[in-house]
Amino acid sequence: MAKIAFDELRFVVADDNAHMRRIVRTLLRAFGCREIYEAEDGASGLEAVEAYSPDILISDITMPIFDGIELTRMIRNPEGCRHPFLPIIILSAYSEKKHVIAARDAGATEFLCKPVSATALYRRIQNVIANPRDFIRTKTYFGPDRRRYVNPNYSGVERRTGDGSENVIDPNQVHIEA
């Protein structure tokens, strides 16, 4: 695997807690990142995504106006946001399964539980860059493939292949117009 040129990356960090934003910014700067924009609520997070076109969004869940789950849903709406493929790392003190599932079903790329560590944050960033997952579009979901593993023993209906319901699309042919 190649090394990451962090100085080429642009981040938006959305968290209502100024101390946590400072901690994340400190870690990103130490990784080598130079362009970091901050937002203190979901609405300004969405504005920052539209204004700065970041490469990666790091977002808390609990925030005023709208939370990180809603922010993720808004970004994953190709009709309403110009960056529906944006990698989103949810960074939250919620560690319960229901919150992880809610983030996944909203279209989050990665979930990282607070307390944040340099190692965990680095690995999540590395993963979204080096191992991007397919995006899935259904009537009810748009976002990274929620199946992380292939179960060799799965014997049910395969909904994505074989019956003509699947289309594999080259993202270069998906145009998004402002």
């Binding site: 695997m1 190649a2 090394k3 990451i4 040129a5 962090f6 080429e8 990356l9 490469d55 493929f85 990698p87 680095y122 690995r123 590395q126 979204v128 860059i129 080096a130 991007p132 997952r133 397919d134 995006f135 899935i136 579009r137 259904t138 009537k139 493939d145 909904r159 994505r160 319901s165 699947e166 289309n167 594999v168 699309i169 080259d170 993202p171 270069n172 998906v174």
Partner: peptide, 25 residues
């Protein structure tokens, strides 16, 4: 209806450079 969209490679091309990934990490 359903679609699988292959991952975009732009981010990889933008920021991955030759080098020892473990050492850099």
């Amino acid at each position: 209806g359903n679609a699988v969209i292959k991952p975009q490679s732009a981010l990889r091309e933008k920021c991955l450079r030759p080098g020892d990934a473990d050492e850099a990490a």
